[in-house]
Design a binder for these strands. Structure first.
Lengths: 237, 237
DNA sequence: ATAGCAGTACTGGTATACAAGCATCGGTCG
DNA sequence: CGACCGATGCTTGTATACCAGTACTGCTAT
């Protein structure tokens, strides 16, 4: 969202609501999103809804076809790969910039986070939040915390697919273990090992997505600009 | 802009116009941007102007303060550093992914681009366009062309500062020479040398910015959330 | 002269009305 | 029976009106 206006504006609320629903698959890929219907159901006018959709379209989570309709983007393999590339580039580059003296408070946060990952291993939603916070923490540790927002917006497509993966394929415990390996390498000041482990971790996530793709091809799009049908095949009503 | 709607909509025109004016410093950092005035002068209603400002705010080029006003962001050193980090991470990671067989057509484009850089060395605007195309070409060469858009939006703050730097500090010829070095290393399949040269190149750009910062501190902001004054100090009227 | 306060003109946020255009459905014609 | 074609209802894009809130201006009281 805009860096400015921290104020609790309707647009902000609507944007966050819609984004969460898209990422949690509550609004599945391909769903039709009518500005009018959303406005009515959210109890606001079209304006904040429309502005939110524009932002989500910019992020790639929504596609807007003028005079036709707006739709939750299908998970385009190309975009997923792009997001993977970007995320890997940023998170690995951050590890290169780790300072000699790590911020003890941040390290404590990370340790605590890992402990919670062990505890809440079964709750997928909780694990997702902890995972986010862990990766963000590593970025902050290297002094690049502000770049997290860029990773976040790229992560959108990854997250939707990952969510499927976590539910159907791998267990959070596997990823939690990899998180611990990474932090250990970081604390050992072993950048090479940290990088290698991080890369392996991120690629594991990616392969998880590829695996789910063969199972639920309908959620993926071969051509990202395909116009979904309006009345038929509307998934959510 | 939104991935969808390729249609020539008013919003698209306004967005591109405003973005260009901000990046070329035609709208200098700190300028007040009244939605009403912009709408009037561009001959459209507030709606497309407003939606464009929201997108520019998302990009960090504009700051919107509800009930106060919208302003072209000052060049915040923090954001410049963030953009530098992101760009470096992405472009270096791309070099790691160069395929064994480079696309001959793309290589030809890059060679041609460098030749033009030699020719148009004096025209700053032309050099900027060629520079963009060169870096984008390297990304495409590694198969990550679609990630260019992410770099572009991060580059916003860099570009504004660079523009000052190019006008006042270093000459385009220096950068053109570095571009040649990079391409040579790429064609030699010497990834390490390509990475090292690229890093040196990007950091040179960054240092150029730091140099200009000491000369024109008024264009930079110490605190990125400072509210500019409305009527006084309005730079552009 | 100055501190305080109220008026006023402006801001962006929101709601709503209208316009332009696509997709569907039903009738009609070949 | 099938292909065409226009009416109809939806879509997003745009314009406009109104609202809440900010900041400046200038009067007023001290």
């Amino acid at each position: 969202m805009a860096a400015s206006d921290r104020r609790r504006t309707n647009r902000r609320v609507v944007y966050e609501t819609l984004r969460r629903r898209v990422l949690t698959l509550e609004l599945p890929p391909g769903s039709a999103l009518s500005e009018n219907e959303l406005a009515a159901s959210l109890g606001v006018s079209r304006t904040p809804v429309r502005e939110s959709l524009i932002l989500l379209a910019e992020e790639g989570l929504v596609q807007v076809f003028p005079q036709v309709g707006s739709f939750v983007s299908r998970v385009a393999p190309d975009r997923v790969a792009d997001a993977q590339f970007l995320r890997e580039a940023v998170e690995l580059a951050a590890l290169d910039d780790l300072p000699a003296k790590l911020d003890p408070a941040l390290v404590a946060e990370l340790r605590d986070n890992l402990a919670q990952q062990q505890r809440h291993g079964s709750d997928v939603e909780e694990f997702f939040a902890l995972d986010e916070e862990f990766h963000r923490g590593l970025l902050r540790l290297s002094g690049h915390g502000r770049s997290w927002s860029t990773v976040v917006s790229a992560k959108g497509h990854l997250d939707r697919a990952r969510r499927l993966g976590l539910y159907e394929a791998s267990s959070p415990a596997v990823f939690a273990g990899q998180h611990e390996e990474i932090l250990r390498a970081v604390l050992d000041s072993d950048v090479d090992r940290a990088r290698a482990t991080m890369r392996r971790h991120l690629r594991a996530v990616f392969e998880d997505i590829e695996q789910i793709r063969t199972r639920s091809p309908e959620l993926f799009a071969s051509d990202s600009d395909t116009v979904p049908v309006r009345r038929n095949v509307v998934v959510w009503e």
